[in-house]
């Protein structure tokens, strides 16, 4: 990665983190409605994968979707407006936190039904193959979500059709309040995907560079017609399952410890500054810029136009007759 790529990656990582920190604060003031799941702690996965993608490539996200949206290039202000339920939000207030989409960015939606994205992304990859497209499709799913049967139906179909499809499994060790050990018989998630007949690797999802390298390989393989792959990346979930989750199932120390030891941002910073590829001043300038962008996003969200009751009826069909 050259200097500009590195600076761009840092910018995205910081943006994802700050977006969630701000969302958390604003959620607590009662501004944001709905079940809100924060991506903080897992940023290196979305960014490590999406740095390889263009607007033409398609992704499908999960209930924990803010990070994927931002990594794919969605506008933070338009996303904040959506969290606020404004008509200027990306989905005009119809979707909210769990359903942010931006088709102009190849972001085919966050999805509140666990596991549902994998088969849909197979369809996106199929469309690429059928139309001679150059795009690939990526679905994200959590470790808990890998226990939905249709994820394996999707994997098998992608293998059978040799589709340009990447399955990214985000392993944060929890499905809501249930630890992975209680829910997943074979802890080796890459082996489960490999058993479907495709290359599958597991990487440290806190290490941006590890994710970036492995994703690059899988995406390049898909682009040259080499078929689907699975990438398993493990990273912690810093906050509760959703905002308002009191996290009685893990201790305060455990959470603080995760933040201390497994934070992708300090890891990234340490590496680039030690190598001398980015300077502290450059990073500080990015931080200041992101802080400004987030202030602006929140200000826009607060002042955003509100929906009127009649808006309920828009967008149910293209034409209803």
């Amino acid at each position: 990665m050259d200097h500009d790529d590195l600076l761009g990656a840092y910018r995205r990582l910081r943006l994802l983190r700050e977006f969630e920190e701000r969302t958390r604060v604003e959620f607590q003031t009662g501004q944001i409605a709905g079940f809100t799941h924060l991506y903080a702690g897992m940023e290196a996965i979305a960014v490590g994968v999406c740095e390889h993608l263009t607007d033409e490539d398609r992704i499908i996200s999960t209930h924990r979707g803010h990070g994927h949206c931002l990594a794919k290039g969605c506008d933070p202000a338009a996303m904040m407006l959506e969290l606020w339920g404004s008509t200027d939000g990306l989905c005009r207030g119809k979707g909210g936190t769990m359903h942010i989409a931006d088709f102009s960015r190849g972001m085919l939606g966050a999805n509140a039904v666990v596991g549902a994205g994998a088969p849909i992304a197979v369809g996106a990859a199929l469309a690429s193959l059928m139309t001679g497209g150059t795009w690939v499709a990526v679905s994200f799913v959590g470790d808990g979500g890998t226990n939905i049967g249709s994820v394996y139906e999707a994997m098998n179909l992608a293998v059978v059709l040799q589709l340009p499809k990447i399955f990214v499994i985000e392993d944060n060790g929890w499905g809501e309040m249930t630890p992975i050990a209680n829910a997943t018989g074979n802890r080796d998630l890459a082996a489960r995907a490999a058993a479907m007949g495709m290359p599958a690797v597991a990487v440290d999802g806190v290490d941006f560079f590890a994710v970036h390298a492995a994703a690059g390989e899988a995406i390049a393989r898909a682009r040259r017609g080499g078929g689907p792959s699975t990438l398993v990346a493990s990273a912690p979930r810093f906050y509760g399952h959703h905002e308002g989750d009191p996290q009685l199932y893990r201790s305060r120390e455990e959470i603080a410890d995760l933040r201390r030891r497994e934070d992708c941002l300090p890891r990234f910073i340490e590496r680039v500054t030690t190598e001398g590829s980015l300077t502290a001043a450059e990073l500080a300038a990015v931080d200041a810029d992101i802080a400004r962008i987030m202030d602006d996003a929140v200000a826009k969200a607060k002042a955003g136009p509100r929906p009127v009751p009649g808006d309920v009826f828009d967008h149910v069909y293209a034409r209803y007759r």
Binding site: G95, T97, P307, P309, D311
Partner: peptide, 16 residues
């Protein structure tokens, strides 16, 4: 409710 999916924003769900 109307013949629409359930909208998310507060005002919209209230209207729904």
């Amino acid at each position: 409710a109307p013949h629409t999916p359930v909208p998310q924003a507060r005002e919209l769900e209230r209207a729904y």
